[in-house]
C-alpha cells in the first residue's frame, strides 16, 4: 500500500543521505522524497512517499526513528491528511493544441506561467493523482517536458508534527 511519511530531522550536512541510504540499503521503495528547512532553521522536514506491506512500512518507520538525526516520524496514513505536489509542464502550444491546452489548464485549475512562441508552461498543484490525471487527460504527443516536486504532506486539523 502507498504510504506518505513525514519526518523532522536535524538540519545537518549529510542528514538527507542517511535517509536516502537507508531506503536503498534495505531495498525499500521510494516514490518521492522532498525536503526543506522548516520555520525553525535547525530542523528540516521531509515527506517520503513509499509503498509496502504493513510489515515493511512498520520496519521503515522503526528504521527511520533509529537514525540518530531523526527527531520525529509520522505515518500520515494513520489519520486524515492532505498532500500536495507541484508540477510544471511544458506543452506544445501550436495549432489545435493552443486552445486545448488553455482549456485543460483551466479545468484542472492550473496556471500558464510562461508563454513562448510555440509552447506554454503550465503550473499545477494538487494531489499526486490529480497531477497524474492531468498528464492522462492531455495529448501525450504535446508534452515537451515535465518536472514534479514530489508530494508534501500535512495532517488535518489537530494532527501536528512539531518538536
Amino acid at each position: 500500500m502507498r504510504h506518505i511519511i513525514s519526518l523532522l530531522m536535524e538540519n545537518e550536512a549529510g542528514a538527507l543521505s542517511r535517509v536516502a541510504g537507508l531506503f536503498s540499503a534495505r531495498g525499500y521503495n521510494i516514490e518521492s522524497l522532498t525536503v526543506a528547512v522548516t520555520e525553525d532553521p535547525t530542523l528540516s522536514r521531509m515527506t517520503i512517499v513509499t509503498t509496502g506491506s504493513d510489515d515493511v512500512i512498520e520496519q521503515i518507520i522503526k528504521q527511520l526513528n533509529k537514525l540518530i538525526d531523526v527527531v520525529k516520524v509520522l505515518d500520515l496514513n494513520d489519520g486524515k491528511h492532505i498532500e500536495r505536489e507541484l508540477m510544471l509542464v511544458k506543452v506544445k502550444a501550436t495549432g489545435v493544441h493552443k486552445d486545448e491546452m488553455k482549456r485543460m489548464c483551466d479545468i484542472f485549475r492550473g496556471r500558464i506561467i510562461d508563454v513562448a512562441d510555440n509552447s506554454y508552461t503550465i503550473e499545477l498543484t494538487g494531489s499526486c493523482s490529480k497531477l497524474d490525471a492531468f498528464i492522462e487527460a492531455i495529448d501525450r504527443s504535446a508534452i515537451l517536458e515535465t518536472v514534479r516536486t514530489g508530494a508534501s504532506g500535512i495532517g488535518r486539523g489537530d494532527r501536528i508534527l512539531k518538536v
Partner: peptide, 14 residues
Amino acid sequence: MVGVTRPCVKHNFL
C-alpha cells in the same frame, strides 16, 4: 569516510 562508513556505523561525524 562519512560516506563510506554510513551503512555500517550507528552514527558518524565529520
